[in-house]
Design a binder for these strands. Structure first.
Lengths: 132, 132
DNA sequence: GTAACTCAGTCTCAGATAGAGACTGGTCGG
DNA sequence: CCGACCAGTCTCTATCTGAGACTGAGTTAC
């Protein structure tokens, strides 16, 4: 069956529940982990466990504030594991949980779509700008 | 090959380009269309073409301001087609372009993952809250 | 006949959110 | 002794989002 039809069917199902965030997975989950930094963070951690400052070096234009916040959210959702070694200086290692790794599949699908169609989108954007 | 490894490999490739939004599809594309309203909008339009006010009724808690903005962005990226009928009152119909429909596949993958693991995430969230 | 509602937005103002960058305290290298 | 590094937190500002009033012609309801 066409993925488009299937997606539409799901939407209509959520509709009947009033798009309740506790029942609609887009509202309840993708809102949080589908954002700018979370997706990038999961990609960065897909390579392997990383320390806080290593992540900051890998993604330099995230602020420490958002880095902390993003990691805490992913931890609360059970996608990321936070391992604190109470040494001096402190050593905190972040890694993907099995749940986090299971997210890599769908995310990869999305990323591959983005890579494939990126040129087309860039062109459309350019034309739109020219028209304006 | 493990999707996780593959995702990691892609990330390291973007790294070498300094995460340039013109080369990294997560930055350049998913930042924009991976947000709260865009994903929901694509689901809503997957069913079929819709008019502006119909979309607003389908997703009541989006403001008209964000509805306009989201649709304009998706249009600029070539995922959505805007058809204006210069009647009185004006009639504007939005529909997915072929590019937009091709996005349904990967998005469906993500949504299905979200549906499957939503209970586990809710439980983890509850435990985190209890611990705090 | 006139009050209310529809179409697809735009506009303004307040409130929430994101980013920049200083600061913590202890320990190491030079 | 001076600075860098660890993993953050804190504050201040800039940007973004949401709520809701407004547009103006036409259609319906009473």
């Amino acid at each position: 069956m066409d993925a488009c039809v299937e997606l539409g069917a799901k939407f209509e199902l959520w509709q009947t529940a009033g798009l309740d965030p506790n029942r609609c997975p887009v509202r309840g989950l993708l809102d949080q982990i589908g954002n700018r930094w979370s997706t990038l963070m999961i990609c960065a951690l897909a390579v392997g466990p990383r320390r806080f400052s290593a992540l900051h070096r890998l993604i330099p234009d995230i602020s420490k504030r958002m880095l902390t916040q993003t990691l805490r959210t992913l931890e609360a959702d059970g996608l990321v594991h936070r391992d604190v070694q109470p040494t001096v200086p402190p050593s905190v290692t972040y890694s993907l949980t099995p749940l986090g790794r299971s997210f890599a599949g769908p995310l990869l699908g999305l990323v591959e779509w983005a890579e494939t169609h990126f040129p087309a989108v860039l062109q459309t954007r350019a034309e739109t700008k020219r028209a304006a």
